[in-house]
């Protein structure tokens, strides 16, 4: 939806104020409310659905495959599908690149290893059913939820197959499948997240809505993993459909400020997501 110049200027002014006012009365670090559902796709190892009140919806599925570790460049492959966009369009390619670098950088790959030769490869497929603002955060949230609820089959054949090749054999009981988190040696397993931040004047806004995006001066994405900032971190032009007429350069202070903001609030986001997973009813119905 296109804003008139008057609206735009009004919005910009209210966002650029010291005590900023967001149209939906959110604080600068607040995300929009989301509805979360996991493990509803029976044929996938893990699945998640994220829905916003404005109708944006993202479904993510994680499927595993046994591969020879030596033959694979990466044990995680991320694919994003947005209806209406070609797979090689800038928009989609950009999103895919960000997600892929995020995951390849910050993921406990040892938990995917099976034997000395074989490992699990995870295929993460995101389908963006509909979106209003730049969907990267929600895509990463959906991936986070899906990864947390992913179960992998349990290996029962010999782990050591250096000398004699053995085809890996798995327990045929799905109940024996283990959560990705449990396969990891460390106590907690929190997949990485990407936070999308809008820059207006001296203010930073977490999760800018579609209207807010139109008046932003710039955008920053920051990754969060293991309770601290991680890469990729870079700035981005969020709007796809309309130009950001206010587009300006980014000062390093804003970058530092965004890092501080992230450090302050991201832990809560993770906590909220974890809680959302637990509070779900286990009925597998999505509507």
């Amino acid at each position: 939806m296109i804003l008139s110049p008057a609206e735009r200027s009004y919005l910009y002014d209210s966002l650029a104020k010291d005590e900023l006012i967001r149209p939906d009365a959110r604080a600068d670090y607040q995300f929009r409310p989301i509805e979360v559902k996991t493990s509803f796709l029976p044929s996938s190892n893990g699945s998640a659905r994220v829905r916003l009140t404005d109708g944006s919806e993202i479904i993510t599925s994680i499927k595993s495959k046994v591969v020879l570790a030596a033959e694979e460049k990466s044990l995680i492959e991320c694919d994003i599908d947005i209806p209406g966009f070609r797979d090689d369009s800038n928009f989609v390619a950009n999103l895919k690149y960000n997600m892929t670098s995020l995951l390849n950088k910050s993921f406990p790959f040892e938990s995917l290893k099976l034997t000395s030769k074989y490992a699990f490869k995870l295929f993460i497929d995101c389908v963006v059913i509909s979106y209003s603002s730049f969907p990267l955060t929600f895509i990463s949230i959906a991936c986070y939820l899906a990864l947390k609820s992913t179960k992998l089959p349990k290996l029962i054949s010999d782990v050591n197959d250096e000398e004699t090749a053995e085809q890996p054999l798995f327990s045929d009981d799905w109940e024996n499948a283990q959560y990705l988190g449990d396969l990891n040696d460390s106590k907690s397993f929190n997949p990485p997240l990407i936070i999308v931040i809008g820059v207006v004047g001296k203010n930073l806004l977490f999760d800018p809505s579609a209207e807010e995006e139109q008046v932003l001066e710039n955008g920053i994405i920051i990754s969060w993993y293991n309770n601290d900032i991680s890469t990729p971190i870079h700035n981005l032009n969020f709007s796809v459909h309309s130009n950001m007429p206010n587009y300006k350069g980014l000062s390093q202070q804003m970058i530092m400020k965004s890092i501080l903001m992230a450090r302050k609030h991201c832990a809560n986001i993770v906590k909220a997501l974890d809680q959302a997973i637990e509070e779900q009813t286990d009925d597998g119905v999505i509507f």
């Binding site: 796709l41 044929s43 996938s44 479904i59 599925s61 499927k63 495959k65 694919d79 599908d81 209806p83 295929f123 497929d125 389908v127």
Partner: peptide, 14 residues
């Protein structure tokens, strides 16, 4: 416009 997700079948197919 039908879009069949690659994870819709038992074996993933892009």
């Amino acid at each position: 416009n039908v879009s069949i997700a690659s994870f819709s079948t038992t074996n993933r197919k892009k």
